[in-house]
Amino acid sequence: MALRGVLPPEVIQLTPNVFTQPFWDAAAEHRLVLPRCTACSAYRFPPAPFCWRCRAQEVEWVQHQGNGAIYSYTVVRHAVIPDVRDALPVIAAVVELPGTDGCRIVGNVVDCEPEDVKVDAPVMLDWYDVRAGTAVPIFRLI
């Protein structure tokens, strides 16, 4: 069954670089992985070539279950580009992941009504298969 509350595939274009490619490779397999500093254990997101805390470069990719709470959100109701008009409204949520030094993932909260979404609401991670080999994180209210 089609997901309700996501944008059409044609407006979702990923342009990974060397730092972000591992995230998207894992995403395509429906796994959420986050880069963690091998020197001081600080998570960094979005993926970056330096640790914001200790400036080391090396990371290990740590899998996260992806469940968290809505830190904040907006309900996008007005299309600023025509290609998204039929998909609106969509709920864009910023979800903070516990135990990650405050890493936040942005994704649509799907298959629910805007009125049901609240700051601090617990959510679980799911994936939107945009096309073969490309998936982006989405969330569902628990």
Partner: peptide, 11 residues
Amino acid sequence: PEGNFIQPAGL
């Protein structure tokens, strides 16, 4: 590459 983490959600 950074925008990839927010644009797919409609921001």
